[in-house]
Design a protein around this nucleic acid. Structure first.
Length: 281
DNA sequence: GCCCAGGGATCTT
DNA sequence: AAGATCCATGGG
């Protein structure tokens, strides 16, 4: 189907934004292949105001409209930032215009961000892909290509010790194993967390073994669509220290309830700007 | 609150 | 080739 869309939606920026790790470029101009639950979408921009999607209208309405958070105007949210008041974020949102916070699967986000600790983005991609191949189901894409679905809690819990060890998750393996067992047994219920406010679901998430403040905020933001969650990773902490004199000085109240969207602009900005190498003083 | 191990891939030198 | 770092956390 053809989608007319005039608000922010830059596929390359989203793919690089560190919220999704399984988008793949297909080789066709600007096109991405996106696995979500048991579906696959091929999407590319046609022109300034149009996109081509491999799904039918009905499937778009049922699944992909919310996946891309198309019920919200990101230009309006960006316009909350005042150039004089907050020049750093103002610049960040200018450069990051096109980013959206996706509505991804909570379980996939939980496991992905448990895996993400002390890894860089290419390494996270590799580990998630290995896990999907080891325990997911094959989905048939275009031209008969196979993409592996993200494994369910039951599928991960059912993996042999050897099979899980081959994914080479290191010390995170025990976290992933326990989360899968607890979710399969109903001791972790992400569906319940979808009904909670940020404080409650943040607390519930941090009770999961291997989930601290950072991972909880990522799952809340990217998996439970809590747009006020503000994950602090090394890039954000470094940037807030340099430009705001510390993370405590960021004007969170000013951007409530969209601090998580602002975090995405800052993450992109801090991560892509040139770094001091320390090789000369 | 502070400190450090834990594993492997990637980035830097 | 080797060392540092990586979207952190749990436990001491």
């Amino acid at each position: 189907m053809k989608l007319e869309w005039k608000d922010d939606l830059d596929l390359d920026m989203i793919a690089e934004s560190g919220q999704c790790f399984r988008w793949q470029k297909t080789g066709q101009e600007g096109e991405y292949r996106i696995p979500f639950r048991r579906e696959l979408l091929y999407i590319r921009r046609i022109d300034d105001t149009h996109f081509d999607l491999s799904c039918k209208e009905r499937q778009f309405e049922r699944t992909w409209r919310s996946y891309f958070d198309l019920g919200r105007c990101y230009r309006d949210i960006r316009s909350m930032v005042c150039e004089e008041e907050d020049p750093v974020l103002y610049r960040a949102q200018q450069l990051g215009a096109g980013i959206r916070v996706l509505g991804q699967d909570p379980w996939e986000m939980l496991i992905t961000f448990i895996i993400s600790q002390r890894k860089n983005i290419p390494a996270i991609r590799l580990a998630v892909e290995k896990l999907a191949r080891a325990a997911g189901d094959p989905l048939e894409g275009r031209n008969g290509e196979i993409v592996w679905s993200f494994p369910t809690a039951e599928q991960i819990a059912g993996m042999s010790e050897q099979a899980l060890a081959e994914v080479k998750l290191g010390y995170r393996e025990k976290y992933v194993r326990k989360a899968a067992e607890d979710a399969a047994a109903g001791r972790i219920c992400l569906e319940e967390m979808e009904q909670m406010d940020l404080e409650s679901c943040g607390k519930a998430l941090r009770e999961i073994y291997g989930v601290g403040r950072k991972v909880a905020d990522c799952v809340a933001l990217f998996g439970l669509h809590q747009l006020d969650a503000f994950p602090r990773d090394v890039w954000i902490n470094r940037g807030l220290a340099e430009d705001y004199g510390g993370e405590e000085n960021f004007p969170y109240d000013r951007y409530h309830p969209y601090n998580g969207i602002m975090q995405q602009y800052l993450f992109e900005y801090f991560r892509n700007r040139p770094r001091e190498t320390g090789s000369f003083h």
